Simulated scan of single mutants.
Amino acid sequence: MENKVNEIKISYIGGVKSAFWKKINHSQDAANLLYENWDKDTIEVHESFKILLLNNSNKVKGVHQISQGGITGTLVDIRLLFATILKSLSVAIILAHNHPSGKLKPSEADINITNKIKRAAKFLDILVLDHLIVVPNGGYYSFKDEGIL
């Protein structure tokens, strides 16, 4: 009997060469990139949780949607989040989710999941650079800028 297993891959869609990856210097850079790439038809309908995957020079390798939820929340399975980070060989991440309501204040759940991810990332030598809340009008809230990361 032959032993067969599935091969697991991660793919990069779009073919952007590393020389053209966007460098993140400030929260505004990340917020602009996220907003430009967010589906404008759904940003004010339901919450989604995404991560920006970065290399050692803070250049964005890609963006990945971790979850899509309802009107007032989305569940984040950190096992799936870290599976993506590790498989993409990223050394840093920026967390992001949207608030369809336009409210820029993080909830207690937002703060708790950020801290949980940060603790797990530290164990794996992955930097959590920021967590952004993006709203439909293009505004954002940065956990780092506000001193809660």
Rank of each mutant, 00 (worst) to 15 (best):
V5G: 15
K9I: 14
K9P: 04
I10C: 09
I13Q: 05
G14V: 02
V16S: 05
K17G: 15
K17W: 13
S18C: 12
F20W: 06
W21D: 09
W21N: 07
W21C: 13
W21I: 15
W21P: 04
K22R: 07
I24G: 02
S27L: 00
Q28L: 08
D29V: 05
L33S: 14
L34F: 08
L34W: 02
Y35R: 09
Y35I: 07
E36R: 15
W38N: 01
D39R: 05
D39V: 09
K40Y: 11
D41K: 15
T42V: 03
V45R: 07
E47V: 02
S48I: 13
S48C: 14
F49N: 10
F49K: 03
K50M: 10
N56G: 14
S57Y: 12
N58G: 12
K59T: 05
V60D: 07
K61P: 06
V63D: 03
H64Y: 12
Q65E: 15
Q65N: 15
Q65A: 12
S67Y: 01
G69N: 02
G69H: 12
G70M: 11
G70I: 05
I71K: 15
I71W: 12
G73R: 09
G73P: 01
T74K: 04
V76T: 02
D77F: 08
I78C: 11
I78N: 15
I78R: 11
L80Y: 15
L80W: 13
L81K: 04
L81H: 01
A83K: 14
T84F: 05
T84L: 01
I85W: 08
L86V: 13
K87V: 08
S90F: 00
A92H: 01
A92M: 03
A92Q: 08
I93A: 04
I94Y: 06
L95H: 11
L95R: 13
A96H: 11
H97S: 11
H97R: 03
N98V: 01
N98S: 10
N98A: 09
H99K: 13
S101K: 07
S101F: 04
K103E: 07
K103V: 06
P106D: 05
S107M: 10
S107D: 07
E108W: 08
E108N: 13
A109V: 09
D110I: 01
N112I: 11
N112E: 15
N115D: 08
K116P: 00
I117A: 03
K118I: 03
K118C: 07
K118F: 04
R119V: 05
A121R: 07
K122R: 03
L124T: 04
D125W: 09
D125G: 06
I126C: 03
I126T: 02
I126L: 03
L127C: 04
V128G: 07
L129Y: 00
L132K: 10
V134K: 06
V135K: 00
